[in-house]
Amino acid sequence: MLYIVNKKGDALINCIDTVSVDDVILLIEDAVYAALATSLPSVLSKPINGVAIYALMPDMQARGIDVARCYKHIQYVDYAGFVDLVEHNNPVRSCY
């Protein structure tokens, strides 16, 4: 399953509580802030076993988020990659 998350907080936390092996999480819009590495532990500090986590690069750029400041286990896609994730994962669930 592909989870598309568009904000931090409950939407992301509920998503992380629900995912299982082979699921994929895509962070879009304000959810990309969750990719930022923080000194205190955050919901995405550690990789989730068997779950790939992506962030939408155009939304990161729009918010001035530098990949160098983000968690290393997060991968990045543009809109074409977003479409590929939708194509290769079924079903698709939006968390907002």
């Binding site: 568009n6 879009i28 819009e29 939304d59 543009d78 809109y79 074409a80 977003f82």
Partner: peptide, 15 residues
């Protein structure tokens, strides 16, 4: 942002 995100997604999908 939903309408803009959807728009960009649709353009990429059509492409």
């Amino acid at each position: 942002q939903a309408a803009d995100t959807a728009w960009n997604f649709i353009q990429a999908a059509i492409d």
